[in-house]
């Protein structure tokens, strides 16, 4: 007997139970009492402010990540320097560390009693329990995404092409703009999407440094937990649909990229 139907059945059943059902339930519960109730729940001032904070955080974190990711990937792919291997491992570190531990580390270093936070205190600069803290830990947890996507492509996209551009009179910028960048556009966008999804959804690290000030330092995932613990199930599920919706957008974008990703030029 062929294993084919069995394998397909297992895969579909698993996806249904573990992935589709929970997401479907979120939407079902959120809209159970009608669209009006849902709308009222997500327009609660606290929830609205959480949505805004989450979006602002992502808008700050992702561009910084793109710039850092490009610089790091370029340096690692093109230059041999002392500490190169260490840098490579360090960039992956956020994947290995539990987010909550990362949050604690930031609190210890940048908090009022930490070495950096303590030094900044006299100048009235506070880095924890506000937007700055949330951005810092979000940068930490999303750090690997862009580098990981761009680096492998940059490593195989020949250095020879860049050298050819130079001999043809291109400036460093022109070389990057016309020769390097077109080869890494899609991996870059893909990495940025993954980083966005993570920045929006991060809970553990952010919960440590946010300070949980209602209406001020609550991101959407924190707000959802808060509402749920307050027995405000409708509010929690409504806020969860917003988060799930943002995640679905990134999923759709991923799919679109897979569709349009240019395949020409496998060999030159």
């Amino acid at each position: 007997m062929s294993a084919r139907p069995l394998l397909i059945a297992i895969a579909i059943l698993f996806a249904l139970v573990v992935i589709v059902m929970p997401v479907a339930v979120i939407f079902a519960r959120a809209f159970a009492e009608g669209f009006g109730v849902w709308l009222a729940a997500v327009s609660e001032p606290e929830t609205r402010s959480a949505i805004m904070l989450t979006i602002v955080t992502a808008l700050i974190v992702v561009p910084i990540n793109i710039v850092f990711g490009l610089c790091a990937a370029w340096a690692i792919a093109r230059f041999r320097f002392p500490g190169r291997r260490v840098l490579l491992v360090l960039i992956e570190l956020p994947f290995a560390i539990s987010p909550i531990v990362a949050g604690l580390c930031f609190l210890l270093v940048y908090g009022a009693y930490g070495p950096v936070g303590g030094a900044l205190q006299p100048y009235g600069i506070q880095l924890m329990f506000n937007l700055a803290g949330i951005v810092l830990v979000s940068l930490f947890v999303t750090c690997p995404f862009v580098v990981r996507e761009v680096l492998p492509v940059l490593s195989v996209a020949g250095e020879d092409e860049e050298r050819a551009a130079l001999t043809l009179g291109a400036s460093g910028w022109q070389m990057f703009r016309f020769v390097t960048f077109p080869n890494i556009t899609w991996p870059l966008v893909y990495g940025a999407i993954l980083a966005t999804a993570r920045a929006i959804g991060e809970f553990g690290a952010v919960s440590v440094v946010s300070g949980a000030i209602r209406g001020q330092t609550m991101t959407l995932p924190l707000q959802i937990e808060l509402l749920y613990n307050d027995y405000n199930t409708t509010g929690a599920f409504a806020a969860a649909t917003v988060l799930a919706f943002l995640a679905l957008i990134t999923l759709v974008l991923r799919g679109l990229i897979a569709l349009v990703h240019p395949v020409r030029g496998a060999a030159t």
Binding site: G158, E161, R163, A165, L166, T167, G169, P262, G265
Partner: peptide, 20 residues
Amino acid sequence: VPAARRRFGMVFQSYALFRH
């Protein structure tokens, strides 16, 4: 003088054509 300012045409072993 940097390579970009020498105006020397170079043909590489791999040809190094811009694939895109």
